[in-house]
Nucleic acid binder design. Structure first.
Lengths: 250, 250
DNA sequence: TACGGAGTTGCGCATATTGCAACAAGATCA
DNA sequence: TGATCTTGTTGCAATATGCGCAACTCCGTA
């Protein structure tokens, strides 16, 4: 709706990947360099971009500060964090906390396990609806109408042999997930990574969050992760309790 | 330079503190609500703001994602983090990593100690030039010209009885800092908090970073912190080594 | 059913934004 | 050393863009 602001947002995304000189930014936007300069200067004034040692534009420190602040404002995170941390320490695997926001599942916390590997997930990013354990477990427990809306957002892009590439296949998985009480990711995004995910309930009993435990298949097979599901579930229930849930698993 | 972008930045800062309805945003900017709406919709499209459950605008998840990404791109941080973590664990105090950016010292990492207390510092924020230990230690080791530029940014606002409120007083402290090899904060920002800070050198031997260890006076007095300065210094030297510094303390 | 508050959309006007062209400041090279 | 190229910055005139207005919808409340 606002062209200039849209361009400013575009710039931040462009500069996020690597440091860029003015000319590259202008070219990327398809505008004259003076135009790009003026937007960049405004962003720089607000601390959203800055110049690195080489004079190229990179993301600014205010962006970090707002990001941290926004993170602090996600209430569930502060309650859940100690539990996630303990889980990660005890098992040595990477732990994620996901939250349903609108029609997407967003990673709101992540604790790296031992020997942390590069993983696509990042706090604040949306989880892949059709592959991520957290996404699947949260989706599985939603009312039909909401579930449909979430599924509408799935891309069904194929990443590996086991990726669900059709809605029917994913729905079957979700039903199974609900039946057994947890979700599994059997190398659906990266074939050398698997994960299990358990649901977290809020005070009204709704599944608003999910906790996933992710490991390299080389470190822990899916079967090994399954052996500890009860522990993961009790951690999730601990978080549920802190969110005010008084009930028991139906 | 760009009015609309400046307004967009203003909006983000405005909704950062608390959720705001459209009317409040418009009033804050002093523009018609339709104008505010269009900027908000653009920001919403980019994920920089979102609507909470009550329809009020809050910071968006893309802001968190960019914040995390920007954090990762600060190279020194990734190298220093494990060292800071060990320091925080061993002593149980809160540890900060500060970096000189332009004429300011910015917190680029923070590891909470046991029983973490609410502290004004936040990753991405600027440190108070005249009170923060990291700021003082980094400033103390700069070349005269740079030091002057940093000192020009100091507010000398009085927070407690021990706050340096004049340039002369702070400069004397900096000289002392350089002489003894570390900086101290004797309750200069909050009278119940003190801290010591040690310098970190980059590959060229320049002091670009600082590590501070902060504690409640009730938990550890300044004298007690001093007893461990050698350990803090060796941690800082470890980071310096990872940044490529081959030399020894002159 | 009428009322008031909050958000949204279409439209004409004018202001803020744009591209240009000229300039400044480094690099790079002969 | 000087010439040439690259990159960033500023002044200005034209107009596309963002602006306020007013009318409308949608809620909740009386």
């Amino acid at each position: 709706m606002s062209q200039t602001v849209a361009r400013a947002i575009d710039i931040i995304g462009f500069v996020a990947h690597q440091p860029r000189p003015l000319n590259d930014v202008a070219e990327h936007l398809g505008v004259h360099k003076s135009t790009a300069l003026r937007i960049l200067q405004t962003l720089e004034g607000g601390g959203f971009v800055r110049k690195d040692a080489g004079g190229h534009y990179v993301m600014g420190f205010q962006l970090i500060a707002y990001g941290q602040l926004a993170l602090d404002q996600v209430e569930a995170r502060s309650l859940a964090h100690p539990v996630l941390q303990e889980l990660a320490e005890r098992h040595g695997h990477t732990v994620h906390l996901g939250e349903l926001v609108g029609d997407h599942i967003v990673y709101i916390d992540k604790v790296d396990g031992r020997g942390s590997v590069a993983m696509g997930s990042r706090i604040g990013l949306r989880a892949q609806t059709h592959t991520a354990g957290v996404a699947k477990v949260i989706t599985a427990y939603q009312a039909p109408a909401i579930r449909e809306r979430i599924l509408d957002q799935a891309t069904f892009e194929r990443f590996t042999d086991t990726t669900h590439t059709s809605r029917e296949s994913l729905v079957a998985d979700l039903n199974q997930t609900r039946a057994r009480g947890w979700a599994e990711d059997d190398g659906e995004h990266e074939d050398y990574i698997n994960c299990v995910a358990v649901p977290v309930r809020d005070a009204r009993g709704k599944v608003t969050h999910g906790v996933s435990v992710t490991a390299l298949t080389a470190v822990a097979s899916l079967a090994e992760l399954r052996n500890h599901v009860d522990e993961f579930r009790s951690a999730a229930q601990q978080i549920s309790a802190e969110l005010g849930w008084k009930g028991h698993t139906p």
